[in-house]
Nucleic acid binder design. Sequence first.
DNA 1: CTGTTAGCGCGTTCAG
DNA 2: CTGAACGCGCTAACAG
Lengths: 342, 342
Amino acid sequence: MSTAPGGHPPPHAPTLADLAREAGTSRSTASRALSGRGYVSPEARDRLFAAAERLGYVPNASARTLKQRRSRVVGVIVSDLGNQFYARLAAGIEQILRERGYHMVIVGDNSDGVEELTAARTFLAMHAPGVIITPGAPDATAFLLRRGLPVVEVDRRMSEQSCDAVVIDNVRGGRVAVDHLLSLGHRRIAHLGVDTDWTSDAGRLEGYRQAHRAAGIPIDERLVLRIASHDPSAEARIVELLSRESPTAVFAANNILAQQAWRAIRTRGLALPGGVSLVGFDDVQWMEMVSPAITVVDQPTFELGRRAAALLLRRLEEPGSAPTVELLQPSLLVRGSTAPPA
Amino acid sequence: MSTAPGGHPPPHAPTLADLAREAGTSRSTASRALSGRGYVSPEARDRLFAAAERLGYVPNASARTLKQRRSRVVGVIVSDLGNQFYARLAAGIEQILRERGYHMVIVGDNSDGVEELTAARTFLAMHAPGVIITPGAPDATAFLLRRGLPVVEVDRRMSEQSCDAVVIDNVRGGRVAVDHLLSLGHRRIAHLGVDTDWTSDAGRLEGYRQAHRAAGIPIDERLVLRIASHDPSAEARIVELLSRESPTAVFAANNILAQQAWRAIRTRGLALPGGVSLVGFDDVQWMEMVSPAITVVDQPTFELGRRAAALLLRRLEEPGSAPTVELLQPSLLVRGSTAPPA
DNA sequence: CTGTTAGCGCGTTCAG
DNA sequence: CTGAACGCGCTAACAG
């Protein structure tokens, strides 16, 4: 009799030992039967499965992790779960992980290096099989790598040492955006970027420069604005740029900045694209819904997440192989917010 | 000498036993020192902390969970991480959890009952201290409750048994939206809802009915449309409703339906709000950016997540208390998409 | 094909 | 205040 008298929450969750007793086998046979590896006679197997069913057996993940020194829960660190970009990235990661029998524990650092390191420690403590991170600093990656945990950097690369990564071809994205504007005849193109040392933004800026260089057009550095991530005066600063420097076009290097630029343009009372043209980076919902719709460099965000997860899982299977960097291509969606300058 | 010769990934992560050896104490003393509970002399304590620092000791979470029969990782199940609503909800949950030293493992079922149950089993296996769920069916909650795991249902209540929950006052939200339209003079108001048995949508529909009843206006049931979650013909069906029934206003009961309604209105070539008025539910970015901006019943999504997490943590501290249901109030944001009928 | 044995790393008695 | 001893539930040897 192992069921509780009242039928209420049983005294303890059934363990392998309970199963074994019920089925008249040893614990190891039960283990082999349920985990699928190792030989076990069909009859014993059936009895064990029946017992598992009857008792509502659920294997204890911690015990398994303790023994195997590796869990099935991969760690994920993103800058900000509230941002659509990171949310979609996470959704992509989660999808692949779940398909393959893994799970994810996710933490949002707020682009804060200390939080990143704390999360890294946690993942180490949990014996995560690996970690996927949108790094804000190189430290967390370095820490994990040093301790032997596989890391995939996604969206940007921050690690000094080489590790797996999957990123967008940001230089190309920036290049394509600005080429588009230049070909429309723009010569005073503002660049709105984030004030970080992220490779993503650096790449987009580099693309901006390359495009100018290729066209033989000098860059007026007063048009290049760097705005901190949660700067409350962002919109005001863009308004000011608009009025002081009179750019004929604006390239906003992420979806937040694009939104702020869009607002600033309204605030300033400029017509779009009549008064100024706007190109964004990272297509999000509103960009297609406003009128005119926003021309944008689209990036495969969901796919970025999927690839990162797939890459991590691959490394788990082949630990030896050389670090891989996957480069995903962005694509320009020309919509109504860009036109030749007045 | 316990450091590895090459300084490369050490043979194994340092354990409490290593610390104890380094500091010349026993394992249990080391345990007490690091976990903070239990007596230990200051000198021993210092030596142990120093050793921990030096060796880069990180406690093994699985071992701890195994021993204590409870992890620090709460399970979270949401319908769709890619939907802004759920993403913000998750962000709220994560914030509170992290503040309090917990983490979250999140899975997106696609409103699929089987996936929900699978996830529930996983959380049970992981010995999660509790689970937060946006339920699509009552089964997962029932399963977890039966096994003694605290559950908080969020956004909608599906459980037959009573359990903690935090939801929006959806009846009120629907009521307020439709009252607004009625007071503008609308008499033919379409209702767009999801084809599920979720209490959230049922509540909004109930609010719609209440408002009509209170105003003494009969409802033309042909104006009440139910659309399945990922119905590809959603927009087409709305277009059809628009042309066949000629409502003067539309109440779309979630952000997806609002978007589809907005598109349908454009497709149909109707002026907004001249040809038809539109009220949404759940304020998202684009609603404020399009023109005219969309009148909407706003709900505190992020706060919903925070409350759910806080409620779960409270229950962990006081397991005995009666189930709590928190009701958060929505608020109507009147914008440009509503006006008196032509 | 199966059972016995021996830990995985930690927290928690219980003597000292 | 400290250490010795045990067990959480599972799996990986190794005999049989």
